[in-house]
Computed example of a mutant assay.
Amino acid sequence: MLSISCKYALRAAVFLAARSRNGKRTGILEIAKGIEANEHTTAKILQLLAREGLIASAKGPTGGFYLHEESGPLYLIDIVRVVDGIGLFFECGLGLKKCSESKPCPIHFTYKAAREQLLREFSSISVQQLARDLDNGIAFLKRSS
Rank of each mutant, 00 (worst) to 15 (best):
L54F: 01
K97L: 14
S102L: 14
I35C: 02
F65T: 00
F15E: 06
H40N: 10
R143M: 04
H108V: 07
T42R: 06
K24D: 10
F89D: 04
K59F: 02
A58P: 03
K59C: 02
S3Q: 07
L94Q: 11
Y8T: 02
S102Y: 12
A17M: 08
G93Y: 09
G72M: 07
G95D: 07
D135C: 12
A139D: 00
K33M: 10
L118N: 12
N38M: 06
F122V: 13
N38Q: 10
K44Y: 07
V14T: 12
F122K: 11
T26H: 01
F122N: 14
G87W: 03
A9R: 01
A139T: 03
I31R: 01
C99A: 14
I79L: 09
L134G: 09
K98D: 15
L88N: 09
N136G: 04
L29N: 12
F122T: 12
A12R: 01
Q128Y: 11
E91Q: 13
E52C: 13
R25F: 01
T62S: 08
S102C: 11
G34D: 10
G93P: 07
A50G: 03
L134H: 10
V83T: 08
L74S: 05
L134I: 12
E116R: 14
E116I: 09
F65E: 01
V127L: 12
N136T: 09
E36R: 14
R120A: 15
G85A: 08
G27S: 12
A13T: 03
V82W: 00
K44H: 11
I79T: 08
K44N: 13
I28V: 15
G34M: 10
R19C: 13
G85I: 11
I86D: 11
E121R: 14
S145G: 12
H68A: 11
R81E: 01
L54M: 01
R25A: 01
P104E: 12
A17W: 07
C92P: 06
R51K: 15
T62Q: 10
K112H: 10
A12N: 02
L134A: 09
I125L: 15
G72N: 06
S5L: 03
Y66L: 00
S145V: 04
S145I: 06
I31P: 00
